[in-house]
Design a binder for these strands. Structure first.
Lengths: 244, 244
DNA sequence: CATTCTAAAATCGTATACAATGTTGATTAT
DNA sequence: ATAATCAACATTGTATACGATTTTAGAATG
């Protein structure tokens, strides 16, 4: 198939979208929705064929996804959907807390009525999706954090929060047990309340508790010997088997 | 020039390094050392020719540098060295503080003797380079923060700190006034001390003060109307000319 | 039957080719 | 002379081509 699709012809549709971007987004969604499960091998050829583009664009997308931690890139051996280790998981959660703490600080007492409305509207949608436990509910719960970061007005902070959120999704896909996210809705409401009142300390405490609940879901299924060690260590410590 | 350099020939050197990585690093250094000044246009052809590689690799490097905020990528119009706005600068400094705060929390009271030695050794090198005010001194001062993040053992935190540090360099290249970094050395020593004593609060306070000093150097030369507004706003507020 | 070597296939790394878009400078009409 | 128009040029977007490396399958050997 030729590169530039019909130039002359009869109408010449605008062809606005840069296709590289589309490839990136498609792969990203496929990974986050677990259509591509962690560990899946990703040959450039097949993927490109599947998406109707050349290896060039697929490769480009892989590069970006690798920087975001969603794809693992081994030299001369190609790409695969990242399979986060528990150590990486710990790192991600730690950074996420630091970032979201900053979001709370930026937002406390500075939410405009329109922004509060936007957040409450979102929480309402979360509650609606509550029953149907499909991926919809999980996606919405995650988006709450992204919206908060967006409202902070700090583009970099927003980008980083989005990145760690994505990686959290992947981590939960590997280590998380299925779990109803009932608590999320009420916790989100409390956070909005604290932010409106300008109570930064409470907002931060709530957020930390909330994220710890998310993290707690991930500390379960050890896969590698190293992961096993990480899971067992706190128990060993609490029993006085190893030094703190 | 052919792709795969001599296969037969007489010796066939190993050719270990992936060239894409080299291109990326070369451009990165060139930008950070201001050999390529902010705003400089970066045509794929010329750069590739200069570096002895094809556009493919240059393009790949541009993609990565753009994600790190060092290069600006405009669709169909190519790449240029990023010219950060003051708003971006504010964002970067804010995120940097949040991240380095986390580094302090991770490190306070947990530095091993070897790690303390490494840090003190680095500070000693900073002091040596003090006199010769070349770029050497600035680079070393920046590296102190990167080493701290590295010691934290959190790979993601380390990557993010490195990224915001790079962007800070670029920001100072645009807005910073030349300024002796005498204070840096003694401040760095104080931080090590606080960390060794396990005094997280003091370490955080010192780091924040230190970073604010860096940030203060950047708030000077407004370039765009928007930047001008950002610079003047705090003054206007302090004079009661606009509402806080 | 397990193991090591080898040849073929698959896949990656990089360069080049071609189409599409943007830029520039000359030409013409006002 | 100035502004609008269009052709030549420059540069980006994407596909294809080709050498290099890794993986796999099969044959030969112990």
């Amino acid at each position: 198939m030729g590169a530039g699709r019909m130039a002359g012809g009869t109408k010449a549709e605008p062809r606005k979208t840069p296709r590289a971007q589309s490839v990136y987004r498609a792969l990203r969604r496929a990974i986050l929705e677990q259509a591509l499960r962690p560990g899946t091998k990703l040959p450039e050829d097949s993927i490109g064929e599947e998406l109707g583009v050349s290896r060039t664009l697929v490769r480009d997308a892989f590069g970006r996804l690798a920087l975001e931690g969603l794809v693992e890139l081994t030299p001369n051996r190609g790409a695969s959907v990242a399979y986060p280790t528990l150590e990486e998981a710990r790192d991600v959660f730690e950074v996420r807390q630091a970032l979201e703490r900053q979001v709370m600080l930026s937002l406390a007492g500075r939410l405009s009525p329109a922004e509060i409305a936007r957040l409450e509207d979102h929480v309402r949608r979360e509650q609606d999706a509550q029953g149907r436990d499909g991926p919809e509910s999980i996606r919405l719960a995650g988006e709450f954090h992204i919206i908060l970061a967006e409202i902070s007005g700090n583009a970099l902070l927003s980008r980083y929060v989005q990145e760690v959120s994505s990686r959290c999704s992947l981590i939960l896909a590997v280590y998380g047990r299925p779990h109803s996210s009932e608590c999320a809705v009420s916790e989100h409401r409390q956070i909005i309340d604290a932010l409106r009142k300008g109570d930064a300390a409470t907002a931060i405490a709530l957020m930390e508790h909330h994220l710890e609940a998310v993290a707690a879901r991930a500390v379960l299924a050890p896969r590698t010997p190293d992961d096993l060690a990480l899971v067992l260590k706190p128990y060993a410590r609490s029993e006085g088997l190893i030094a703190p």
